[in-house]
Design a protein around this nucleic acid. Structure first.
Lengths: 117, 117
DNA sequence: GTATTACATCGACAGACGTGATTGTTATTG
DNA sequence: CAATAACAATCACGTCTGTCGATGTAATAC
């Protein structure tokens, strides 16, 4: 892959003088990076990502039992994924009788999106 | 947390008739979800996320030895993180003599960003 | 009340992950 | 050449993850 970079020339350090003083720093601080990584990590599974995708567009329309056949996994496993998404603050749920309705909290996704752009 | 959803009413299935026909589907297909999750997973670590952050803004300016002191981890561990980012197609590197210059490939981040928005 | 549905929790297990110490490879300096 | 810097690769380690089966809990239907 070809790149078009101005590579800053480096010189080997003298013997004994180890590298080094960093010359650049990240713009995101540690705590913000931890939060953003938490969101990204929760999205780092294909099933969870598709879950978010379907919940984002059909909030309040589907119960968990209707989500199960969409993915080739067991009901406890899907429950586990929904738990992960909730722990990351990406979704929340409301219980109505026997049924649980999950929905997306847009803030978390916006946080990540804002950093990405 | 209060929500404002129109929860679709559900009725308990008759005995023996198990749930169920899904009524909604994800918009992203399976292969796309796998790719997006791969990108998100690579960003799902605070150090890697900060690495991307600093590389994105200072491409070609820093060698690996200057990245090490930014994070409280050993050089092999940082090398491992850079490998993960490269495997996900988020960064690539160019070797110049002793030094390795890493840079961000914007396409991957844009992919994820496009899905998020 | 009893049976059954819907969903969550628990226990277990293989595999992946983040980490560091050590070693290997390549290139530069003298 | 020899010494050493820069970086990658390997090995080892404890922890976390995704998965399922089994079980638990609460609500509905009869």
């Amino acid at each position: 892959m070809s790149v078009d970079l101005e590579l800053a020339p480096k010189t080997k350090r003298p013997a004994g003088e180890r590298c080094c003083e960093p010359i650049v720093y990240p713009d995101v601080d540690r705590t913000q990076a931890i939060r953003l990584a938490e969101i990204a990590k929760a999205l780092g599974d294909p099933i969870r990502l598709q879950l978010v995708d379907v919940l984002r567009k059909h909030a309040g329309k589907v119960c968990v039992c209707e989500l199960v056949p969409l993915f080739d996994i067991s009901q406890p496993t899907l429950s586990h994924h929904l738990n992960k998404l909730r722990a990351a603050g990406i979704v929340d749920s409301e219980r109505r009788g026997l049924w649980a309705y999950y929905y997306v909290i847009p803030d978390a996704l916006q946080e990540l999106s804002a950093w990405l752009t």
